[in-house]
Design a protein around this nucleic acid. Structure first.
Lengths: 228, 228
DNA sequence: GTCACTTTCTGACTGACAGTCATTTTTAAA
DNA sequence: TTTAAAAATGACTGTCAGTCAGAAAGTGAC
């Protein structure tokens, strides 16, 4: 049925049109100040229509997060195209993430908000949340893959469990990135004002730290047995 | 004036009574579902009174975060009492933080919310936010101090800038901790369900990673110049 | 072209809640 | 007891997310 196909496509378009409008409004005013009526006006639709495509405001915001994570994952995927060692890939994944956050603070804020949601039941029912979750899984998968490559080519210490290490690196990268984000957007975290550092150098230190930590020659890592 | 002193004390008490009630309600229902009327009822006061002590709901929640950070800082301070190397102190600071988050998820959620606030102007005016900020600064100060001790006693590589390294370690610790938090509270981050890891072991890996990264013998850290 | 039926869209309406403020109650000192 | 200041109250207001009965547009058969 060609008509049905077209309708399907049109639905998709409407949905995207609404997400476009929501980004426009939410990225500029912030989630709290952005009203559904604002978004409807921006999308040149009525408020009721928004609710035909998204169950509620939160789900619409999750749709934005999903879009962001899709874009990010595409960039991650590109990193694997080049001819690099695992360790180099890990570095490039970090660079990519950091660059994404700096250039797309709106998406980053959507990520943070998504992660802070805790009404698990509501999220379980949401299709949008489900596919957003898929993207997050994929992102972590990239990290695991990079580590496995690194362990094979000898650039990464293989005494770690790659999946566990992936989570460690991924989450600490997120910690750093969140700090960089705060510094970049002029967040209220005062410590950052006083410490006059460049965010790039901060990230550089982090990379050095992680790199030293996971690089081969595990002899290095025996200090812990004394220390604890 | 003895009367004035007493009044001062009573004000302080009321304020604490309200924060107690707010914790009770918000920790059990979550911020969004907790209404100011709920909190007032729990505090056995009227809604209006809440607004005599806190400008708005957000400021009340920040007061909770402040209380949490005060408790946490006290624990951090205790770590320095023992006779440990800098590297050991860093480890213990991490342990302390992790333990705090596990046992006080409500405070941790308040921290996260506080950090996600972005209306800088409103925060600048808030006394509560200001003192909360002081606590955060103090927390980072502990990390800086631990690193300096480590660099002096030779347990930490002194080729890093201690303040920059403090931010790196502090923020990556926060990243890890946030992951542990999600795992512990049954967050919706599906990847975590599938990866059957124990949060303690995750943290162990992180400590190993950081420890290896910052421990002395900087020869280890030269890999980057090749890798990038 | 028109009819009958379905899908999509609309915006006035509802309920819930944060925050206000005129009024009442309590306290303190004369 | 009086009076003035301080503290507390809760009915009220404005805003906004989310709903729903009905209007409009689209579809396909004849």
């Amino acid at each position: 049925m060609s008509t049905e196909d077209r309708k399907e496509r049109e639905k998709e378009q409407r949905s995207n049109q609404i997400i476009d409008a929501a980004e426009e409004v939410i990225f500029s005013k912030g989630l709290a100040r952005a009203t559904m009526t604002d978004i409807a006006a921006q999308a040149e639709l009525s408020k009721g229509t928004l609710y035909l495509y998204f169950k509620n405001k939160t789900e619409l915001y999750i749709a934005i997060a999903r879009r962001g994570s899709k874009i990010l994952n595409k960039r991650f995927a590109k990193v694997f195209a080049g001819d690099f060692t695992g360790l180099q890939i890990i570095r490039k994944l970090g660079d990519t993430y950091l660059d994404f956050v700096k250039k797309n603070p709106g998406y980053y804020r959507a990520f943070m908000h998504y992660e802070s949601l805790n009404d698990v039941e509501i999220l379980r029912k949401s299709e949008v949340a489900k596919s957003c979750e898929e993207n997050r899984k994929e992102a972590l998968g990239f990290m695991v893959r990079a580590l496995q490559i690194g362990m094979q080519d000898g650039s990464v210490d293989d005494s770690y469990d790659p999946r566990q290490l992936a989570i460690v690196i991924w989450s600490s990268t997120k910690g750093i990135t969140s700090m960089v984000y705060m510094k970049e957007v002029g967040h209220h975290y005062k410590v950052l004002d006083e410490m006059e550092f460049e965010t790039d150098r901060l990230f550089e230190s982090f990379i050095k730290l992680v790199g030293t930590g996971i690089a081969t020659e595990q002899a290095r890592s025996n200090f812990l047995t004394d220390g604890h």
